[in-house]
Design a protein around this nucleic acid. Structure first.
Length: 240
DNA sequence: GCGACAG
DNA sequence: ATCTTGTCGC
């Protein structure tokens, strides 16, 4: 597949995904589909990319931690070629194929999954966290490091204090929430993936925040692991 | 044509 | 996402 997005098959591909998104959108439930007091394990997912012979590769890492102790209980990874380019609004089409394959490797079943990207806070309310939930059958939360502007609506900056937040309301609907993990750091952008409400999603993100990083621990650990594995794979590609 | 743009 | 050095601060 060409990377310039001019391939007609590629356009058809995106058109089909739009239909799929619209179908799936009907299944989104912004209410809890689980007992939030019985969360035992939570997983974070992230990818790292590199180029080789003019082709794009990535490694996906899924790190699962104990919800209370924050100790890592499992780490899995898988690498593969990435053929879909990044287009704002279509992140899941680029990353989901590898994520779903990596998820099959898990031996410990998480109770909830966090994604590096949005869920309901999306042009079609179907960001990667929501989209993935329909394949993983687990409650999901989207946590982005920057804002994806919807319908030209800006967000309200939270106060510069620990745990300050503001709701992101678009057309009278709560699309998501800004959250400043600590005073002096930029806010992160939380949104429901599926089968969870925004207050619970915020609680869970806050439970996973420590002084080390702006991102929740599961995503932070997956990010670290993914960069580590990329080094390994790049070395292998070179020696072959 | 120009700006915006999760990762 | 990725390319990249030093540097200011807790």
């Amino acid at each position: 597949m060409k990377k310039d997005g001019q391939n007609p098959n590629y356009c058809e591909y995106l058109a089909n995904f739009e239909k799929e998104q619209n179908k799936l959108k009907k299944g989104i439930k912004l209410e809890n589909g689980f007992d939030k007091n019985k969360i035992k394990f939570i997983s974070g997912i992230d990818l790292a990319y590199w180029e080789n012979n003019n082709e794009t590769y990535a490694v996906c890492c899924i790190v699962t931690i104990d919800y209370e102790s924050h100790q890592i209980v499992e780490t899995k990874y898988l690498s593969g070629e990435i053929t879909v380019p990044y287009i704002a609004g279509y992140l899941s089409f680029r990353e989901l194929p590898l994520i779903l394959e990596t998820y099959k490797l898990l031996e410990i079943e998480p109770d909830i999954i966090m994604f590096d990207g949005n869920g309901f806070l999306h042009y079609r309310n179907m960001g990667i966290a929501t989209h993935a939930s329909f394949y993983l059958h687990k409650p999901t939360i989207g946590v982005a490091k920057s804002y994806l502007k919807i319908e030209n609506v800006e967000y309200h900056m939270p106060l510069d204090e620990d745990r300050a937040f503001t709701d992101i309301i678009i057309h009278s609907t709560v699309y998501g929430r800004t959250l400043r993990p600590h005073k002096g750091v930029k806010p992160i952008f939380i949104s429901c993936g599926n089968w969870i409400d925004i207050d619970t999603a915020t609680d869970i993100v806050l439970n996973c925040i420590n002084q080390e990083s702006r991102q929740p621990i599961p995503i932070r650990l997956a990010d670290i692991e993914t960069r580590k594995m990329r080094e390994v794979f790049m070395r292998e590609h070179k020696s072959l």
